[in-house]
């Protein structure tokens, strides 16, 4: 019987390759479950999960909530802007108060990098990181890799490009860890101002030539420009960014081969990707959303299986 090597999902960095394969194998079964006429299994009927979102989210929050409900878990939703945080309560106090209501797992999204890691040291509960600032977004990387595996099979030796705002992207970092662990080659493409210094140390190559990268890769993950995290101006205008790094159908048609396009959402149509590309057969954006539920079910199921019921 295979089991995860970790008790919390704080980041891809803390997983190993066997963990990734176990999550993918389990997610295949859950994908079948969510395509049944009745899409629910009773595994987690005695588990309560709190979704603590200290930062805005649509897709991830809905996806987690649906995954939990498909597993029959009870869910509790929390949004920071309606909470006592505005009255000065600390993160640890908020979470401990919620845990006092007998919660088994916490799904945490927070604007500060390392928030999930910090919380896992402070509270006695299973923590799933649903995005911590510009640090990691492990379940997004898992569903991206899962979607790529559906297209390509084994990712070993496959060439994956990550294009866009690498500097502010937690998706980029988690994707780099996951794809490298699975044996893929990763190349980053962005304006120099949106690339973190020394990122090559993670075993990736870097380029600022979009066409060269697109010709090189088998799949490209297009990232949004995260204006909300930018305190400075990283490029002159959105139009100029779009001209140099925006993915258009014209650019795709110039390639010598077909490539797969991913986007973690939300899409800024006409900036990093045009509508023609986002809605084309190249894009697997909606597959990613469907797979997101299955992958999150797998993560929750596998972590929950480590929460043994105390036998009295």
């Amino acid at each position: 019987m295979k089991t995860l090597s970790v008790s919390n999902l704080l980041g891809i960095k803390y997983l190993n390759e066997e963990d990734l394969h176990l999550i993918f194998e389990t997610a295949i079964h859950f994908k079948e479950v969510i395509n049944r006429p009745i899409k629910k299994v009773p595994s987690l009927r005695d588990i309560t999960i709190a979704n603590l979102f200290f930062e805005n989210s649509t897709r991830t929050k809905l996806s987690f909530e649906l995954a939990e409900k498909r597993l029959s878990a009870d869910t509790l939703n929390f949004s920071a802007n309606q909470s006592s945080l505005t009255k000065g309560e600390t993160l640890v106090d908020t979470v401990n108060n919620i845990l006092a209501m007998k919660i088994d797992m916490v799904v945490l999204r927070h604007p500060n990098p390392g928030a999930a890691h910090f919380l896992s040291k402070q509270v006695n509960s299973c923590i799933i990181n649903a995005g911590d600032g510009t640090h990691e977004h492990p379940t997004q990387a898992l569903l991206d890799a899962f979607s790529l595996r559906e297209k390509f099979g084994d990712l070993s030796g496959k060439r994956i490009a990550i294009v866009g705002d690498i500097l502010h992207s937690r998706v980029a970092l988690s994707n780099i860890y996951a794809l490298k662990m699975l044996g893929a080659e990763v190349r980053l493409c962005a304006p120099k101002s949106l690339l973190p210094k020394h990122i090559e140390a993670l075993g990736v190559s870097v380029s600022s030539d979009l066409m060269q990268v697109l010709n090189w890769c088998d799949a490209a993950n297009i990232l949004r420009v995260q204006n909300e995290r930018m305190e400075l101006s990283y490029f002159p205008t959105t139009r100029e960014y779009s001209q140099a790094f925006g993915l258009t159908l014209e650019r795709l048609n110039q390639l010598r081969k077909e490539i797969v396009i991913l986007h973690p959402g939300p899409i800024n149509r006409g900036v990093e990707i045009t509508s023609e590309v986002a809605d084309s057969s190249h894009a697997i954006i909606l597959d990613q959303v469907e797979n997101g539920v299955a992958v999150r079910m797998a993560v929750i199921y596998l972590l929950a299986s480590k929460l043994n019921i105390p036998i009295t």
């Binding site: 019987m1 295979k2 089991t3 995860l4 176990l22 194998e25 389990t26 295949i28 079964h29 079948e32 479950v33 049944r36 006429p37 299994v41 009773p42 595994s43 987690l44 005695d46 597993l71 199921y301 596998l302 929950a304 299986s305 480590k306 929460l307 043994n308 019921i309």
Partner: peptide
């Protein structure tokens, strides 16, 4: 039919219950 996710011994011991493929093409 795989019944792993419907079993009553989930979380009753240290083992993780790993599923096998379900192939129910027919209603």
């Amino acid at each position: 039919l795989d019944t792993t996710f419907f079993r009553d011994d989930f979380r009753r011991n240290e083992r993780t219950l790993n599923a096998k493929p379900t192939e129910m093409e027919v209603s």
